[in-house]
Each structure stands twice: as structure tokens, then as C-alpha cells.
Amino acid sequence: YFCHCCSVEIVPRLPDYICPRCESGFIEEL
């Protein structure tokens, strides 16, 4: 997954599918 807020590849935090770095939901499956 790619976080558009951090502009990095991340492993989303489940079950909410949010970025573990910034806690944004603005992520996209690569």
C-alpha cells in the first residue's frame, strides 16, 4: 500500500486500513 500523505509505501494498520505513520486513510493498494 502507498500512503499519499507520507508519500511512502506502508503496511496498513488493520482493520481500519490507515497509515501507521500518519494515521490517514488516504492509502492506495499498489
Rank of each mutant, 00 (worst) to 15 (best):
I18P: 04
Y1W: 03
E23W: 01
I27M: 06
D16E: 14
F2E: 06
Y1F: 11
C19D: 00
L14R: 07
L14Y: 12
L14K: 12
C22K: 00
I10V: 05
F26W: 15
H4Q: 12
S24K: 12
I10C: 06
C5G: 11
L30R: 15
H4W: 06
D16Y: 02
G25T: 05
I10S: 06
S24R: 11
L14W: 11
F2I: 12
E28A: 14
E9I: 04
I18G: 09
D16W: 05
I27W: 01
E23S: 13
S7E: 14
C6F: 01
I10Q: 04
I27H: 06
E23D: 01
S24G: 13
G25L: 12
C19S: 00
I27G: 11
P12E: 10
I27V: 08
C22S: 01
E23A: 06
R13G: 06
E9W: 09
C6V: 01
Y1S: 05
C19M: 00
C3N: 01
I18E: 09
I18W: 05
E29R: 09
V8P: 03
C6S: 03
I27L: 11
V11T: 14
P12A: 10
P12L: 02
V11C: 14
E23C: 10
P12V: 07
F2L: 09
Y1C: 04
P12T: 03
Y17K: 15
L30V: 15
V8Q: 12
E9D: 12
D16N: 11
Y17A: 14
E9L: 03
S24W: 06
P20C: 06
I27S: 15
C3S: 01
E9V: 06
R21A: 08
I27P: 09
V11H: 11
F26V: 14
I18T: 10
C3R: 01
F26T: 15
D16H: 08
C3K: 02
P15E: 08
V8S: 09
S24N: 03
S7H: 00
H4P: 13
R21G: 06
R21P: 00
I10G: 06
E29A: 12
H4G: 07
C22R: 01
C3E: 01
V8G: 06
I10R: 06
L14T: 11
S7I: 05
R13T: 13
E28M: 05
P20M: 02
V11K: 11
Y17N: 03
C6E: 03
Y17G: 14
P15S: 05
C3Q: 02
H4E: 04
D16C: 05
E9R: 05
F26Q: 15
P20S: 07
C6L: 01
G25D: 15
P12D: 09
E9G: 08
E28L: 02
V8M: 11
H4V: 04
C6M: 01
P15V: 03
L30S: 14
I10P: 09
E23T: 12
Y1H: 06
Y17Q: 14
F2T: 12
I18V: 13
C5W: 11
P12Q: 03
F2G: 01
I27D: 04
R13C: 04
L14A: 04
V8T: 09
R21V: 03
C3F: 00
C5S: 11
P20E: 08
C6H: 02
P15W: 02
Y17R: 15
Y1D: 03
F26R: 15
P20Y: 04
E28P: 06
R21W: 06
D16K: 07
C19W: 00
L30Y: 14
D16P: 04
F2Y: 13
F2V: 04
E29L: 10
C6Y: 02
H4R: 13
E23V: 03
H4M: 08
L30T: 12
P20W: 02
E23H: 14
H4T: 13
S7V: 09
R21Y: 13
V11W: 03
V11L: 09
F26G: 15
P12G: 04
L14D: 10
C22H: 07
P15G: 08
E28W: 02
C22W: 01
Y1A: 04
E23R: 10
D16S: 08
I18L: 13
C3P: 01
C3H: 01
E9A: 14
L30G: 15
C19I: 00
D16Q: 14
L30P: 07
I27R: 06
S7L: 11
C19T: 00
V11E: 15
E29V: 11
E29K: 15
V8E: 13
D16V: 03
P15M: 10
H4L: 08
C3I: 00
S7Y: 07
C22E: 00
I10T: 10
C5Q: 13
R13D: 11
V8L: 13
P20R: 03
C19E: 02
F26A: 15
C6W: 00
Y17S: 08
S24L: 06
C22M: 07
C22F: 02
E28Y: 09
E28C: 07
I27Q: 09
G25C: 08
E9Y: 07
I27A: 07
Y1E: 04
C3V: 00
E9C: 03
Y17W: 13
F26L: 15
V8N: 03
I10M: 12
G25R: 07
E29T: 12
C6P: 02
C3Y: 01
P12H: 03
C3D: 01
Y17E: 15
R13M: 11
G25V: 10
E23L: 08
Y1I: 10
I27E: 06
V11I: 09
P20A: 05
I18N: 03
L14P: 07
C5E: 10
I10D: 05
P12C: 02
V11F: 11
C19L: 00
C6I: 01
V11D: 14
Y17V: 09
H4C: 05
